[in-house]
Amino acid sequence: MTRSMKGLVKALALGLAAACSLAAISGATAEELSLKGKRIGVSAIGTDHYWDLMAFRGIQDRVKELGGEVIALDAGRKDQQQIAQLQTLIAQKPDAIIEQLGNLEVLNPWLQKIRDAGIPLFTVDTATPHAINNTTSNNYNIGAEIALQMVADMGGKGNVLVFNGFYSVPVCKIRYDQLKYVLTSFPDVKIVEPELRDVIPNTVQSAYSNVTDMLTKSPEKGSIGAVWACWDVPQIGATQAVEAAGRNEVKTYGIDGSPEVVKMVMDPKSSAGAVAAQQPYEIGKTSVDNAAKYLAGQKVAPFTFVPAVLINKENAAEKGKPFLDAAEKAGVK
């Protein structure tokens, strides 16, 4: 109990200095935890995005660091394949399973089967009643912060283009709902209907053409104030579209902190307004620590939040660099 309290205080302190938290959190618990002789199954829906890849790597690296064996499964963003992999994984009876993202509607019956088979289940960024612990960013905070940043930059009025193609993805639901909640206090900020749909794959190209079309439809300067997306890959396409159309009054907002977007926000001339940068590698590692604690008989809270950092035009130079350094260290562009 005291240890977890201490950990909490430490985590909060580190949250303020998020730049150095990467090294510090792992250092704090490394000696006590072990996964020696344990097999940990890891299932990810896909690793084709920066966030997913970093979290997936964080999980695997941490399991190996703690002396465990990893069964790492990447479904290549195919639901069928992820279900087949989970089914076989259950038959393999690992000591614990860590599941990372995917369609909840598809996954839930299978996550239930994991628990029915007596295998402890941990999730990364996937809120499900079947998991012992879900490790994620505080998406309530992130959603509110990025929305407030957007409203502030817009001066409290104007029209927003919103990408809402993934409301069925739980984290996107939270962020979108937070955006709506924030906007209830700013009635002069309006979401343009119908909302835009972000897609996978071809996310960037599709966002680019969607935003270009909307800017063409509303040609007067100032008729669109901002573009919002619940992640930052559509933000890339949106930012490029705004710049190509010469509509510099429009700013874009997204969440995740892909290096490409962090660079955009750091560039004073870019139309990328802000991005809430998460620490996916750290999130992956933390979920392994939670599994290790649980397997060692310690109590684990149902969710763990790893701090995220809002990078905006004002603080980009200072806050953005550590993220780019971390990405470079991991060998991801």
Partner: peptide
Amino acid sequence: LTVSRLSASTPGSGEL
């Protein structure tokens, strides 16, 4: 069969 297995219809069937 696919709807039964995934409890839903999901995009991306073309991958098969």
